[in-house]
């Protein structure tokens, strides 16, 4: 196996086009092996033809992102859950 990938920080810019929060700072759970860790620790292949982020534990695909000139396709099938750090919602509580 060759180490021809980047770390998950490479996802920060492309995902910032879609999410209002920094998803690379989130913690994700691999749907395949259950490994939980920061998105920044994923192994990212690409960027062309698309970004493919793989679990550092089992190498299964956790995220795919394809960007055309006028659309983005985001596949998170391989991510069971993301814990995304958010601003305190205290002020919005009933």
């Amino acid at each position: 196996m060759s180490a021809d990938y980047l770390d998950g920080n490479a996802l920060a810019g492309p995902l910032a086009e879609i999410f209002t929060t920094d998803v690379s700072a989130a913690v994700g759970r691999c749907a395949s092996c259950g490994l939980t860790g920061p998105v920044a620790s994923l192994r990212v292949y690409g960027p062309a033809p698309g970004l493919v982020a793989r679990c550092p534990g089992c190498n299964e695909v956790m995220l795919r992102l394809v960007r055309s000139p006028d659309a983005a396709w985001l596949d998170l099938c391989g991510t069971a859950c993301l814990r995304i750090p958010m601003e305190s919602a205290e002020g919005n509580s009933p």
Binding site: M1, S2, Y45, A48, P49, G50, V52
Partner: peptide, 10 residues
């Protein structure tokens, strides 16, 4: 050019 979606299988 080499484009890849994962590690290169040997």
């Amino acid at each position: 050019p080499v484009l890849s979606a994962g590690p290169t299988p040997q």
